[in-house]
């Protein structure tokens, strides 16, 4: 095992981490402001991927596809918020889970109806298609590096949006006391729609970016959604900063675990068994990490409103 290979895996882990952050940020924002658990967030991720792939195939431009996916995901989010989600804010979590689960079923079938059951493929933009040379003569896919940078830029932008702008002030106020900010004349219904559309756009953005690495297929958002839940539990629900830290931890632990565990175990047992046991253990690693965090910090690493 070389240092270069190790560095490559660290970058892969960071790339997974920023993806998870884009998902977890939207989820935690929606939970923090509206108190809603949204299973359909993975569907918005899927919509981002499908719209980007379809528009890119049609126009030949990845960038037009990316813009279209942001608009489509935000629009789908706003539409769903107005039609369904808005009725769920005052309901208990069971109703929220079931209603958004129903939305997952409907979104998946609707996408299957429109795009068919076969996966779509999306090429990254031409100038990002090749590798770049990192220090130490390590070739690394330029597109993956661009995802890391894009994710960190979005994270910084989101941080600024929430801490510096008027909208961010209203979001923070909404988290603290929603009756009060409604009494102060803020249109709370509109604010909720905006927050939901913002979270949806983040998910759609993540889905579009991932679409050029994996195939774009039905249900692509579901594993990411559940990983994002793990991120939120570890980071502390409602905390954007916690989501960022936890997303990077989860991304790194998952990627490095899959890379290192089979190698480490091969010292103790024969190679094929080590690969099997190692990969099985690696797939459980982040959940075990979550269990450990729960034992010591049941409210997560960065509990909001603590």
């Amino acid at each position: 095992m070389t240092v270069a290979l190790f560095l490559e895996q660290i970058l892969n882990g960071l790339q997974l981490g920023v993806m998870l952050f884009l998902m977890a940020a939207g989820l935690t924002l929606i939970f923090g402001v509206m108190g809603l658990i949204n299973l359909a967030h993975g569907s918005l991720f899927m919509i981002g991927g499908f719209v980007c792939a379809a528009v890119a195939a049609w126009t030949g431009s990845f960038w037009l596809g990316l813009i279209a996916s942001l608009i489509a995901a935000a629009a789908a989010g706003a539409l769903v918020e107005i039609a369904v989600i808005r009725r769920l804010y005052d309901r208990d979590h069971l109703d929220q889970v079931l209603a958004t689960f129903a939305l997952v079923l409907m979104f998946s079938e609707a996408v299957r109806f429109v795009f068919g059951s076969f996966p779509l493929y999306l090429d990254p933009p031409v100038f990002l298609a090749g590798p770049v040379m990192l220090p130490g003569d390590l070739p690394y896919p330029a597109y993956r590096l661009a995802i890391i940078i894009a994710g960190l830029v979005v994270a910084a932008g989101l941080g600024l949006l929430i801490s510096k702008t008027r909208l961010g002030m209203q979001i923070r106020a909404g988290e603290a006391d929603r009756e009060m900010i409604a009494a102060l004349g803020v249109d709370i219904r509109f604010l909720y729609t905006v927050v939901f559309a913002l979270g949806a756009a983040l998910a759609g953005f993540a889905g579009a970016l991932i679409g050029a690495i994996q195939s774009v297929q039905i249900g692509m958002g579901e594993p990411v959604l559940i990983l994002a839940f793990v991120v939120i539990v570890i980071g502390g629900i409602g905390s954007i900063r916690g989501a960022l830290v936890a997303a990077l931890i989860v991304g790194l632990v998952d990627t490095l675990g899959r890379f290192l565990l089979p190698t480490l175990l091969s010292g103790a047992m024969e190679a094929s068994a080590a690969r099997g046991v190692g990969s099985a253990l690696a797939s459980m690693l982040i959940y075990l990490l979550m269990a450990v965090v729960l034992v010591f910090k049941p409210r997560g690493l960065f509990p909001a409103n603590a």
Binding site: I237, Y287, L294, R299
Partner: peptide, 20 residues
Amino acid sequence: LSLRTSGVYFIMITLAFAQM
């Protein structure tokens, strides 16, 4: 483990362990 928490945490944690 998951009963140390409640509400929405409980939902996400039971889901995560099942996924594990």
